[in-house]
Every structure is written in C-alpha cells, then in structure tokens.
Simulated scan of single mutants.
Amino acid sequence: MTWRMPAETAQHERTWMAFPREGITLGESTSDREEGYAAWTAVAHAVAEFEPVTMLVDPTERERAASMLGDGIEQVEAPVDEFWMRDHGPTFVVDDERPGVLGAVDWVFNGWGAPEWSEWRKSAEHARIIADLVGAETVSSLLVNEGGGIHVDGEGTVLVTETVQLDPRRNPYADRARVEAELARTIGATRVVWLSRGLTRDYDEFGTNGHVDIVATMPSAGHLLLHDQRDPEHPDHEVTHELRAHLAEQTDAAGRRFEILDLPAPETLRDDEGFVDWSYVNHLVVNGGVIACGFGEERADAAAREILEAAYPGRRAVTVDARPLFARGGGIHCITQQQPAVAR
C-alpha cells in the first residue's frame, strides 16, 4: 500500500480538536483559565461554520465543554492532558490504490522533546483513539514527530525543520535519510524540503523548537506562503530573510522552483515575555474557508485575510483572536487537525 497525506485544501470530513483541561498550559489563575477555554471554543465555533467539528473532552471538563460548545459541536469523552490536537492527534492519510480507505499515522508524541513541564502521556493515545472512532487503519511510526512539524502539498512535497525531526530530545539516532525514508513510508513524501530553523520565540522553554507551521506553508503545489518579519528590530527579521533565500533555491516534488508569497507579520514586536512569534501562516484551511489568526491589529489582520483569500481562491477568510493561543505556545493550526473526506 502507498499512503499519501492530502493537501489541507482537499475536502474535509471534519476537524478534530481537544478541549482544554486544567494544568500548566491552560494557566494558573481563574482569568487565565477562562481565557484559554474561550479561545479554544471560539476556534471551534468558527470552524463549525464551515464543516463539522469533533472535540475530545476529558471527563473532568465534560460539563464545561457541553455548556461552552453547545449542541453544534460533537463531543467525545477521552482522557486529555495536552490539547494541541495538531501535534498529538493522528495525521490522516489516504491510499490512492484503495479508494475509500483512510489511514491515521500515529507518530510517537513525547511533548515536544519531553520537557519537564509537559503533560503528554494521555494525549499521546489520541491518534489511536481517533483512528478507532473513524474506522481508519492505524499507521504506526517510531518517529517522534508532530503534525505542526510538517506541511505538505498533497503531491509528494513536505516541509520539515532540522531542529524538530533531528532534535536529539526527539530522535537521538535519526539522520536526514532515516527521517526522509519514514516520511516516504507514512505520508508519501517524495521530496523533503529542510528548513534550518523556526522562529525565535519557538526556542523558548515552552516552544516546539522550530515547528514549520508558523513559518511556511504551501497553499498549492509550487507555491509557498512565508512568514515575513519586516522590522529589523525583531530577531525574526534576519531569520525569515535567510529562510526566504534558502527556499528560493528549493524545488518541489515536481521539480519546480517555489513561487514565494510573503505573509507579513503583525506590527507588534513584544509581549510581556519578549519578542512574539505571532504569525498569520498558522491558519487552518477548511471547506470553503480559511480560519485566520488575528492579533488585534485591524489593518494587519485585514491585510492577512486579503492575502489568504488570494492564495486560496474561492475561500472566505475569517479572523479569530489568536493571542491567547500564542501566549500558550501555538496558534489556530496547532489546535486543529483536519480529517480528509474519502469515498464511502
């Protein structure tokens, strides 16, 4: 069998999420926790305007989830500790030789390198739980990887980062060849494009060490949307300049040089913790739409929606305030996982 991960623009059956539960990620104070619950809920409701949403809910949060999510979002009870579904949930794949068959890649998840603060062992089971729920074939992998650490064009090209897949805290014995072979086996990658690093803030204690899904994505084959930090005061100005130069020399699975479209960062440079990694690249493509990160900057948010609608013709971009998500370590793409539609 030959598995292939479809592009995010392919038709979806639904989007999967996990409802927050109390712990270090959600926040220590009541107001912090309420902000977190509200942010995850807002994203779920925005996605549900375009396609079905199914939310895994820890038993301790059952009543709160039912009250906040309402009847329009399916809720499935399952143990939850971390709630970044992109990373600990399944990566869905299809088999073009067996129409109607859905696969679910079960990467090894160790909380982004097994940091002391991360609670991840319950959510590491989500890939298999969801695979069973939807009747998907489980594709087991020994690669420590997260869904936010890869982006595909659906035609064999995948973007990855040296500091993620080759992270010694994740895969101490891996090299490029082993990673590429595993990506070929599990998601059908025939061309792996390596980025040297991610954004600066992502290397902090609570970061992922360079996830690609706040840096670059492929809205269509042969095209790249790239985070563009234009202010030289921000360290990511140099980072994104170097990444752009590198990516301009790369080719996709079909041998094409990428056409790069810059997606400017918002104007805000810092929050209370330091330089921000706010990025419009971290959006979710849904059926007929794009769920875009918003950062409270009317002009920049509107410009991002315009660029996204041009990059994804025929889709309507809507903005959800992502500042509470980024304050906790990620964005809209990080808390969602699309399930592609397959013929039944």
Rank of each mutant, 00 (worst) to 15 (best):
V105C: 08
V160S: 03
F19C: 04
T91D: 14
E125Y: 07
A10K: 07
E34R: 14
A302Q: 12
I291T: 03
E298D: 12
G188I: 01
H241R: 13
C334E: 07
P168A: 14
G314F: 13
R62M: 11
L261I: 13
V342H: 09
V212T: 07
P235F: 02
M55C: 12
W120N: 05
V342T: 06
A7M: 11
T190R: 07
G148I: 00
I130M: 03
W117C: 14
P313V: 04
G113D: 05
S123C: 10
H333Q: 09
L102W: 02
I130P: 02
T15M: 05
L225W: 04
A300N: 02
A300T: 01
R64G: 11
L243W: 00
A245I: 09
D271K: 02
D271F: 03
I214E: 10
T9N: 05
A38P: 07
A46P: 05
M1V: 13
P340A: 03
C293H: 03
A18S: 12
T208Q: 03
G89V: 04
H234K: 09
H12L: 04
E180H: 07
R64Q: 12
R328K: 03
L166G: 10
D202K: 01
E205W: 06
V144Y: 09
F206T: 14
L195A: 14
F83T: 03
R128H: 13
A7N: 14
W278M: 06
P115F: 04
A131Q: 08
T161V: 11
D106M: 13
A304K: 03
T190Y: 01
V179R: 06
M17C: 03
L69A: 02
T240S: 06
S123N: 08
A38M: 09
I150Y: 05
V160Q: 01
L102P: 07
K122W: 12
N282E: 06
R197N: 09
Q339T: 07
T217I: 00
M218G: 09
A253K: 04
V276F: 00
D321N: 10
R33D: 08
L195Y: 07
D96A: 15
L69Q: 00
P340D: 05
E309A: 00
E137F: 13
H241P: 14
G103P: 00
T25E: 13
T190P: 02
R328E: 01
L263Y: 00
L225D: 06
N145S: 15
R316N: 08
F275N: 11
G330D: 00
P168M: 12
G296Y: 01
E61P: 09
G147K: 02
D277V: 12
H283N: 08
W3Y: 01
E249C: 12
G100I: 06
P59W: 04
T190I: 08
D271Q: 04
A216M: 01
G27T: 04
A189S: 05
Y173M: 14
D58F: 06
R197A: 12
